[in-house]
Structure formats: structure tokens, C-alpha cells
């Protein structure tokens, strides 16, 4: 049965049918070895990317470098229909 849970940004977990599901991510200690991710640095060039987008009623594609010559605010957020 679906189990009601606190409203948040939880993602599915799973296992092979008939076997026990692995523990939820927030119930286990972080893996001992994790991929080391580096943060971008201020004063350095921004990594370029192409991404699909929705803009003014149309589906389109945006490349960051198209905005050279302009100031850009690039904002990430956890998800549509969330709360903050």
C-alpha cells in the first residue's frame, strides 16, 4: 500500500520484486567513498551548457554562451510545484 509521507522532495527507491527493499537513503550512513564533486569557482569562467527550456509559451533550447555580453542570473531549484 502507498505509505503517506512528509511532503518533500523524496525520490523513489526500489529492489527486485519479492526481495526486501534497501533502506531509505536517510536511514543509512553516507557511503564511505563518495565521488568528490568540485564546486565552480568565483572569478573563473562559467561552464557552458545547452538545455531544453519552456519560455513564453514555447519549447526551446538555450545555450549559456548565447548570453555573452549580458549579465546572467543562473538559478537552480529543487523542483516545480515545491514550496520555497
Amino acid at each position: 500500500m502507498p505509505k503517506e509521507q512528509k511532503v518533500g522532495c523524496a525520490r523513489p527507491t526500489g529492489s527486485v520484486v519479492g526481495e526486501d527493499a534497501p533502506p531509505q537513503p536517510d536511514q543509512v550512513a553516507p557511503a564511505a567513498v563518495k565521488e568528490v564533486r568540485s564546486m565552480v569557482q568565483v572569478g573563473k569562467k562559467a561552464p557552458d551548457f545547452v538545455a531544453p527550456c519552456y519560455y513564453q509559451g514555447k519549447f526551446a533550447s538555450v545555450q549559456l554562451s548565447e548570453y555573452l555580453g549580458k549579465w546572467v542570473l543562473l538559478c537552480f531549484y529543487p523542483g516545480d510545484f515545491t514550496f520555497a
Binding site: 549579465w71 543562473l74 538559478c75
Partner: peptide, 13 residues
């Protein structure tokens, strides 16, 4: 997560 970057006209963060 909620990250916000200011990028200048030269593409510098």
C-alpha cells in the same frame, strides 16, 4: 539544490 550564480558579460562567475 537552490544554487544561484551571477555570471558577468565575459562569462565569468
Amino acid at each position: 539544490v537552490r544554487g544561484r550564480f551571477i555570471i558577468d558579460p565575459d562569462g565569468v562567475i
